[in-house]
């Protein structure tokens, strides 16, 4: 029942869940983007590799690899653009209070 593809997807779903918890818990927009970084890299990698293992080697696997490549290269660009807009428009990062 627990084959390679489902195992990989379970690992990926664990990272996706952790990222969602981080997006809720962390205090400001800069920290939340770190939580999204886990989704963008490891979560996507494990889930998409698991789906690629599901049917054996077909042409769809090459396309899944293309999706993964696009996401890995261009999601950092999106979060960089968003955060640069935030910083230039006066959003200040949350800083821990000195105790």
């Amino acid at each position: 029942m627990l084959t390679v593809d489902t195992l990989l997807i379970f690992i990926g779903l664990f990272f996706l869940t952790v990222a969602a918890i981080g997006v809720i818990r962390l205090p400001d927009v800069f920290s939340r983007s770190h939580a999204l970084g886990i989704t963008d890299t490891l979560g996507n990698f494990f889930v998409l590799t698991g789906v690629a293992f599901y049917q054996g080697l077909t042409l769809a696997d090459v396309k899944i690899f293309l999706i993964l490549l696009a996401l890995w290269h261009l999601n950092p660009v999106i979060s960089h653009a968003t955060l640069r807009a935030a910083l230039r428009n006066g959003v200040r990062p949350w800083i821990k209070e000195k105790k």
């Binding site: 939340r32 999204l36 599901y54 959003v91």
Partner: peptide, 25 residues
């Protein structure tokens, strides 16, 4: 802020891509 909303939407669209491949399986 509006930037939180954009980050959230970016996360949702990444999840939608994953969801489409799982639907395909």
């Amino acid at each position: 802020t509006v930037y939180d909303r954009i980050l959230g939407l970016n996360g949702i669209s990444t999840k939608a891509i994953i969801m489409l491949t799982i639907l395909g399986s």
